[in-house]
Nucleic acid binder design. Sequence first.
DNA 1: TCAAAAGTGTTCTCCCTACACCCATGG
DNA 2: CCATGGGTGTAGGGAGAACACTTTTGA
Lengths: 230, 230
Amino acid sequence: MDEKNYCYKYPHPAVTTDCVIFGFDGMRLNVLLIERGIEPYKGRWAFPGGFLNMDETAEEGARRELKEETNLTAEYIEQFHTFSDPDRDPRERIITIAYLALVKLQTVEGGDDAAKAQWFPLDKIPQLAFDHDLILRKATEHLRERIHFQPVGFDLLPEKFTLKQLQMLYEAILGVRFDRRNFAKKMLHSELLTQLDETVWPTPKREANLFSFNKTKYDELKQKGFRLEF
Amino acid sequence: MDEKNYCYKYPHPAVTTDCVIFGFDGMRLNVLLIERGIEPYKGRWAFPGGFLNMDETAEEGARRELKEETNLTAEYIEQFHTFSDPDRDPRERIITIAYLALVKLQTVEGGDDAAKAQWFPLDKIPQLAFDHDLILRKATEHLRERIHFQPVGFDLLPEKFTLKQLQMLYEAILGVRFDRRNFAKKMLHSELLTQLDETVWPTPKREANLFSFNKTKYDELKQKGFRLEF
DNA sequence: TCAAAAGTGTTCTCCCTACACCCATGG
DNA sequence: CCATGGGTGTAGGGAGAACACTTTTGA
């Protein structure tokens, strides 16, 4: 049972995938962490992930682990960096291919493996296992850069959202504040939004228009080559 | 001699690094390729690269291979994607961590291993080994995105260059044409250039001012958060 | 004297920015 | 009636885009 049946002429590192999963709660960016049930780093929080199967691509592996450990479906998934420090895992040399995933946060959480999964706001991250703090830093940087070229923000929002929600998301990702009126003007002018006939009462004060993301228009604009600046 | 001494409980993929090396010849972007001397794909062209040692990070491995196979020193090196298709190498499962390197093209070529190395303009790339055509496509895309945030172009030029050279480089990378006057105005206004007292005769027609990249100013501006748009 | 390359300035337009008022509602 | 949040318009400034003339030199 402890046999080692896979032999090579030269040493091979192990390869895993890890998923940094972002969700937006309406106010802040959150990441989904899983409490490790086994050593090393038992009891610490870590990103969902695991060993890559020999017959799957890294992205397939990342999606599989995401599904197995959190039961979430990602709106968006993208490889962003591979971490290869020889000592990043105490067991053996493990290289991890890290993915960034965006999900609509209201979808349920909780994985098949009964592992404890929990959302943490970005400014209240507990101590993480392995080099996952480094991975998180790289992931947030990457997300920040991404949003300049691609309207990834919409993957973090529900299908229907208010301008205020959209603005708070952009502010959370970029760490800046926008003028309410200018933000609305720019967004509406971009034609990426479809104004719906529906409204909601986000506060007890006054109803607000709902919008949805116009993917058709986005694909059309992307074809022509455009950038949404912030 | 054919023994397999490195054994694991679970199968492990092999891991390599590959370097897509860009150089600029004054007119066009070029990439450095090496002719493979062994099977598989013997005789085809490929990026320099090789197996990762167990005690080095991927970036160290990439730099080592770069040095061994081409004897070049990169001005800039950055990991951009990891390729993991299970069938991308016919020998065994090999995952490759790919790097983008920028060098000043006039530095000599030719590696230690006596392998044939040669610059190819981007529009005259021969048939490549493995999935290296895919890797090249990803690399050029990445370079194009990078240049929006970072003045990486300067790493591709000699220390002293003319505005015309700089413009041709940007045009080559982005695949667009700029108005000569507007390009000069924007570049000079950015304060990233230092005008030197020297001039050259790039053509037999008239002398041109030489410039150098003002790295101090760049770091200063980056601190304050700025973007050079194109 | 002509062709080719380098240097330079102006105008127009558009977008981003700063900023203020009105409306609807619940307490 | 007032506090809160949502919706909308305008004036000013700055940067990019379009565009032309002059100078230098070799042929």
